[in-house]
């Protein structure tokens, strides 16, 4: 009876800045501000993966930080979810073609929610976390949870470090998370 109040109502997030330009990170901080107030949803921004339920990643993955991202993800206790914040985290964004960039965080960890935008809007980020929390609850109950993917089926991890690829792979443009703010967000000043 009480169990339904758990995961859905108190998703604690840990934020990992992979390779971001800090644009998305600033928007994340804006979520904590009185205007957006993450804590309304019981969301706490904890500083470490051990206490977190949701991993927020901003920025694309490169060679140096791929293992760090994996490490942080592995340290989170089950059930857990990952939210990719911004187009960089989703696909690599404008950094995708850099010589050292692997692509979106999907290359390393399974992603549950993509939040598009460059940078992602705070409303969208909050909504992403709430969506992730719902998935967490489903996962606890052992129900099947779909995982969206932005990686094209033909995609192969690029052999890096090497010269940048000549052709730009097509970037899919259908985000999994809704862009529009939900009704209750509209009420906030």
């Amino acid at each position: 009876m009480l169990r339904q109040f758990g995961l859905k109502k108190s998703p604690w997030v840990v934020h990992f800045n992979c390779n971001s330009c800090n644009g998305c990170d600033i928007e994340l901080l804006a979520c904590l501000s009185p205007l957006y107030d993450l804590e309304r949803f019981g969301i706490i921004h904890v500083g470490n993966p051990k206490h977190a339920d949701v991993l927020l990643v901003t920025g694309s993955v490169n060679h140096r930080n791929a293992r760090v991202l994996k490490n942080v993800y592995d340290q989170m206790p089950e059930p857990k979810a990952v939210v990719a914040v911004g187009v960089c985290a989703s696909t690599g964004g404008i950094f995708r073609e850099c010589y050292n960039v692997l692509g979106g965080i999907e290359e390393v960890v399974p992603v549950d929610v993509f939040v598009p935008g460059c940078p992602a809007r705070p409303e969208a980020v909050i909504d992403g976390i709430v969506k992730a929390a719902e998935k967490l609850d489903l996962r606890r109950r052992g129900q099947p949870v779909s995982r969206p993917s932005l990686v094209p089926e033909t995609h192969e991890p690029s052999p890096k470090p090497a010269a940048p690829p000549e052709t730009v792979p097509a970037t899919p443009a259908s985000p999994a998370a809704p862009v529009a703010a939900p009704a209750e967000l509209a009420k906030t000043p």
Binding site: G6, K9, S10, P34, D37, P77, P79, T188
Partner: peptide
């Protein structure tokens, strides 16, 4: 800020007990 619901500490504790022991 608006802040969390009054019962938030209970939600947190319930959630923590639903998590995997690590």
């Amino acid at each position: 800020r608006q802040g969390p619901p009054l019962l938030q500490p209970f939600f947190d504790i319930i959630k923590l007990f639903q998590k995997e022991p690590v």
